[in-house]
């Protein structure tokens, strides 16, 4: 019975705190995305061949963990199969956050755009449990800096 109580406490803590954190994170992501849309990121390999562009590798990474409630939900989903909705938002948040950090780095360098953006996703705490738990996303690309303005 004690197990059950501990479980229910963890579950509701995970649900309440996790949901609040997720909503807050999404608000922050959308706000920063709107601001950084002025600095476009492309998945194209060939940049405009202008001689006044200098370039720098920019990266942004983030490790995000799923909360207890969502992990339990995902484990349940594993029994029946189907769309694991609780990991969808985890990965979505991680990808967008990583891209934003990369763009922020590019912005700090005074870049005009980022080219050849690539994502790299890895699950970090594999092994302890069979489920993902936490995920790392790295976004990287080449920032093109217009040297004429300096």
């Amino acid at each position: 019975m004690v197990d059950l109580i501990v479980f229910l406490v963890l579950l509701s803590l995970g649900y309440l705190v996790g949901r609040h954190a997720e909503k807050k994170h999404y608000r922050s992501i959308i706000e920063r995305e709107t601001r950084l849309n002025a600095l476009p990121a492309m998945a194209m390999r060939s940049p405009p061949m202008k001689e006044y562009y200098s370039q720098a590798l920019v990266t942004g990474n983030v490790v995000i963990s799923v909360d207890y409630f969502k992990r339990f939900l995902a484990a349940l989903r594993n029994l029946f199969g189907g769309r694991v909705t609780s990991y969808e938002s985890l990965l979505d948040r991680a990808r967008r956050e990583a891209l934003l950090r990369m763009k922020a780095q590019a912005e700090a360098l005074g870049a005009k755009m980022v080219f050849n953006v690539k994502y790299e996703t890895a699950s970090i705490s594999k092994g302890r449990r069979q489920t993902i738990g936490s995920v790392e996303v790295l976004a990287y690309g080449t920032a093109l800096i217009d040297t004429r303005r300096q």
């Binding site: 197990d3 059950l4 479980f7 992990r71 339990f72 995902a74 484990a75 349940l76 594993n78 029994l79 449990r129 069979q130 489920t131």
Partner: peptide
């Protein structure tokens, strides 16, 4: 229910 997450 072998998954440790589902032990409960």
């Amino acid at each position: 229910f072998g998954d440790p997450d589902l032990a409960v």
